[in-house]
Design a protein around this nucleic acid. Structure first.
Length: 842
RNA sequence: GCGGGCGUGGCGGAAUGGUAGACGCAGUGGACUCAAAAUCCACCGUUGGCAACAACAUGUCGGUUCGAGUCCGACCGCCCGUACCA
């Protein structure tokens, strides 16, 4: 009987259909098994999946499948982050409806994903643009509104005057709208805010509980929240009733103050400008400079002397000039600062420019008399030139100034956060409508809950810029739920980050009549392992943490941290190629010849660049569908998991996928060999060593998968495969082969099922229990000692495990090689590391 | 500027302070074949040597240690994040 080779074209769909027919991946909330939720960040339905998706979902799938084999009830869901600008852009460019475009994309991406054979419970699939989803989101918004977690206020936004819409900061490039190219204006609009700052302290403090998150992400969030401790105090303007507050983290340096500075948007600056055209001109000039990062970096410190002065709070005889300064931000702290040039570089630059005094107030033991040069001193030391603070260290002085301010009633200790409240209003059509009705008499009135969802109208046009909801003939015209008079719907929609801030809870529980059932959701949450790109380290992950806390605050759920484990995977990259004129070339258009890389068609030399993230503009994209057609799902999955550690970038290569494909075929040959006749001689000779390796591999791969070190699991699988082939046991090796198959089944599930069936395994391999290593088999009876002389390896010695130190050192010294090297001297020292190594020092 | 990460063969990468280079890719030689593909076997850090073996070798320089890729200090390079944050 000849067994045909493995053919993924038939096997992949056959097993996928079988799993689906069996409901293998259905996550049963009523199961008595321990439950776990494995989640990868859900995709935006852009149209096609890319290799980054494949890598992301392959990793999550390994974990989900392994946990399932380990006896857990696994929830591994999939859905669509379906609202957003690209759909509206497509609508404008092609005259199609955003909803139709989105649903078509979802359909094609779903079928692409299914080809990968992912262990997903598709019964829980949803898209955030489903009214059933966003209706519940509107209900949550109303919950938050009732609980005082929603605010409506004026805010500065980036306004594109051509597209008539607000732009996110990321959509402003060099001060221009990324689509229209129009110069972006700063506009003040009334916006809805979610009060994330209410939780700023908890969001920062609880980062330390997230011990299964990468340190890097925790640090990024900590910096983003930006908690600073210090003093807020009042400056009184001399000769008037005006006063303003400043915040400082260095109250200790207050005696070194030589000026005060306020932001151009500060109310006092506005007041000054109203009466002073030069001040107004300065403000206009600063505003025109733009706020792009590049501008700020090179921008000189500039100020306008208002002619006003403020009293020094600790030294009433002194007064300080007040400047309007370009480096003071209204958005941070109080929009006003005091300048202490000696101990702050920015203040020093400013003071030198405007000839302000520079007084050292912090000194180390030997530099109290040294004047400050071009560099501010920000280190520790003792206070000088500081009145009652003299002699104190920095920390004591901070506390003393705060105490003095509080008792004097002119200031108080304060905590300031960099984190701002979350503006969620978007002047867009393709998003969740904000469930509010504006009434001239009653103000903003919540839509009654029995009228949810507020559904987006289908009949909209994108022939003109701006928000189609705003100009829809009928949609926004409704009566006020409170007084019944004619009123208008809110036409802004929610930021799409709101949609992704609670989708994982909806995955865990999706009743029709409410966003989620608390008890059911809590069975699955928090997510045991969340996997996605590091680009979401701040916004999405912070918003989701906030949302979960806010839901707990309103009593809807009993947890505050949604993701227990977080893993940020690297990108999939590919080499890039450019021709002599600098045009990007597709990998398929070039080849490597002895003389170097050339363009195949023309034979002209090509410059091979480094591997970069796959992108259309660099023409280095590899389409998963074509690869799946050619190699099948298992080879692609295996390649995505091998070679590179998962947190680092993975360079796609043809030879890499070829190698993965070879391994899949080799697994099949190994299985086929195990159906043959037993090779008795080989069995007797090779079995003990192989058995030990099998158990070591079980322990190793289990451990590697737990830690998401798939590249190491892959290496161990190769080792075991090599050893099985080398042993040449035939059917006598079937046990080892079956174990290998179970170990690789989470990674290459289709070939694993096929080979499992071939070897007569019971049921499906995904229903087979995960192998368990026998601890006795992990311990060797014999160990190889490394014998070093003066730290250099000179010999190896196989001895029984657990011998005494004297015995080991005597044995080492007795070998001819070592005896010759030691040459009869008495060793100065012999170090014995039990069961590992002997080092003889002469 | 600040914060973080990373530097190991031709390449991706392994390595609880204890045999550096597991495993894969690429390459070289051979077997099978009319031939090729596939597959199998062997070799595969550098230098010297027929060999046994020796020396060198984990970005650079120093330190701790019987012993350092790993720990400590200084520096160089690359990558990522972030920024007038008071």
């Amino acid at each position: 009987m000849t067994i045909p080779p493995f053919d993924p074209r038939s096997a992949d769909t056959r097993w996928q259909q079988r799993w689906e027919a069996d409901g293998s991946f259905f996550a049963d909330s009523r199961s008595a098994k321990p439950k776990t939720m494995i989640l990868e960040m859900f995709p935006y339905p852009s149209g096609r999946i890319h290799m980054g998706h494949v890598r992301n979902y392959a990793m999550g799938d390994v974990l989900a499948r392994a946990r399932r084999m380990q006896g857990l009830e696994v929830l591994h869901p999939m859905g669509w982050d379906a609202f957003g600008m690209p759909a509206e852009n497509a609508a404008m460019e092609r005259g199609i409806h955003p909803g139709g475009w989105t649903r078509d994309n979802i359909a094609s991406m779903r079928s692409q994903l299914k080809r990968l054979g992912l262990a997903i419970d598709w019964t829980r699939e949803f898209a955030t643009c489903d009214p059933e989803y966003y209706g519940h989101e509107q209900a949550i918004f109303l919950d938050f509104l009732e609980a005082g977690l929603v605010d409506r206020r004026d805010a500065w936004v980036n306004w594109d005057p051509v597209d008539n819409t607000v732009l996110a900061n990321e959509q402003v490039i060099d001060g221009r709208g990324w689509r229209s190219g129009a110069v972006v204006e700063r506009r003040k609009l009334t916006q809805w805010f979610l009060k994330i700052t209410r939780f700023a302290d908890a969001l920062a403090a609880d980062l330390k509980t997230l011990d299964q998150w990468p340190d890097k992400v925790r640090l990024m969030q900590e910096n983003w929240i930006g908690k600073s401790l210090g003093l807020t105090f009042r400056f009184d303007v001399e000769g008037s009733d005006d006063h303003f507050e400043v915040f400082t983290t260095r109250p200790d340096t207050l005696f070194g103050a030589s000026f005060a500075a306020i932001a151009i948007d500060h109310p006092l600056a506005q007041k000054v400008a109203a009466a002073n055209t030069q001040a107004q001109a300065f403000i206009d000039a600063v505003r025109a400079t733009g706020t792009a990062a590049a501008d700020l970096e090179t921008a000189e410190k500039k100020g306008f002397d208002t002619g006003l002065s403020v009293r020094h709070p600790l030294d009433p005889g002194r007064s300080l000039p007040v400047f309007i300064a370009n480096f003071v931000l209204m958005e941070y702290g109080t929009g006003a600062v005091f300048g202490c040039p000696a101990h702050d570089q920015r203040d020093l630059d400013f003071a030198r420019k405007y000839m302000l005094p520079v007084t050292r107030v912090v000194a180390t033991d030997d530099d109290a008399q040294t004047p400050i040069g071009d560099e501010a001193y920000t280190g520790p030391g003792r206070m000088v030139n500081s009145g009652f603070l003299d002699g104190m260290d920095v920390d004591a002085a901070k506390a003393a100034v705060i105490a003095r301010a509080e008792s004097g009633g002119w200031g108080r200790g304060a905590t300031v956060f960099r984190l701002r409240d979350w503006g969620v209003s978007r002047q867009r059509y393709w998003g969740t409508p904000i469930p509010i009705i504006h009434c001239d008499g009653c103000g903003p009135v919540p839509v009654p809950r029995d009228q949810l969802p507020v559904v987006l109208p289908e009949d909209v046009s994108f022939d003109r810029p701006g928000n189609p909801l705003d100009r829809h003939p009928t949609w926004k015209h409704v009566n006020c739920p409170s007084c019944g008079k004619p009123a208008r719907r809110e036409t802004d929609t929610l930021d799409t980050f709101v949609d992704s801030s609670w989708y994982f809870i909806r995955f865990a529980s999706q009743p029709a009549d409410k966003p989620f059932d608390r008890a059911e959701a809590e069975q699955w949450l928090p997510v045991a392992q969340y996997i996605g790109g590091v680009e979401h380290a701040i916004l999405h992950l912070l918003y989701a943490r906030f949302f979960t806390r806010a839901l707990a605050h309103v009593g809807r759920i009993g947890l505050v941290e949604p993701f227990r484990g977080l893993f940020t995977q690297g990108m999939v990259t590919h080499e890039t190629y450019k021709d002599q004129s600098g045009q990007w070339l597709e990998p398929g258009a070039v080849e490597k010849r002895p003389e170097g890389w050339v363009e195949t068609a023309s034979g002209k030399a090509v410059v091979a660049g480094r591997a970069e993230k796959m992108s259309k503009s660099k023409k280095n994209v590899v389409d998963p569908d074509a690869i799946l057609d050619h190699y099948g799902a298992d080879a692609v999955r295996w390649f995505m998991l091998s070679d590179s550690p998962p947190e680092r970038d993975l360079a796609w290569s043809l030879s890499g996928i070829e190698g993965a494909h070879r391994f899949v075929n080799r697994l099949w040959r190994i299985a086929v060999a195990a159906t043959g006749a037993a090779n008795g001689a080989a069995e007797a000779a090779a079995n003990p060593g192989l058995d030990r390796l099998v158990h070591r591999t079980i322990a190793g791969i289990t451990h590697d998968i737990d830690r998401l070190q798939f590249n190491k699991a892959v290496a161990r699988a190769y080792e075991l495969a090599n050893a099985i082939e080398k042993a040449g046991l035939g059917a006598a090796g079937a046990g080892a082969v079956r174990t290998l198959l179970r170990l690789v089944a989470p990674m290459v599930p289709h070939i694993a099922e096929e080979a499992w069936a071939l070897l007569g395994g019971e049921g499906l391999i995904i229903d087979a229990p995960w192998p368990v290593a026998d601890p006795a088999m992990l311990v060797d009876e014999e160990v190889t000692y490394v014998v070093q002389v003066n730290g250099k390896v000179r010999d190896r010695l196989v001895m029984a495990k657990g011998l005494g130190q004297d015995h080991v050192s005597a044995a080492a010294l007795a070998t001819d090689r070592i005896a010759a090297l030691v040459g009869g001297q008495t060793p100065k020292k012999v170090i014995v590391v039990p069961d590992r190594l002997v080092n003889i020092v002469v």
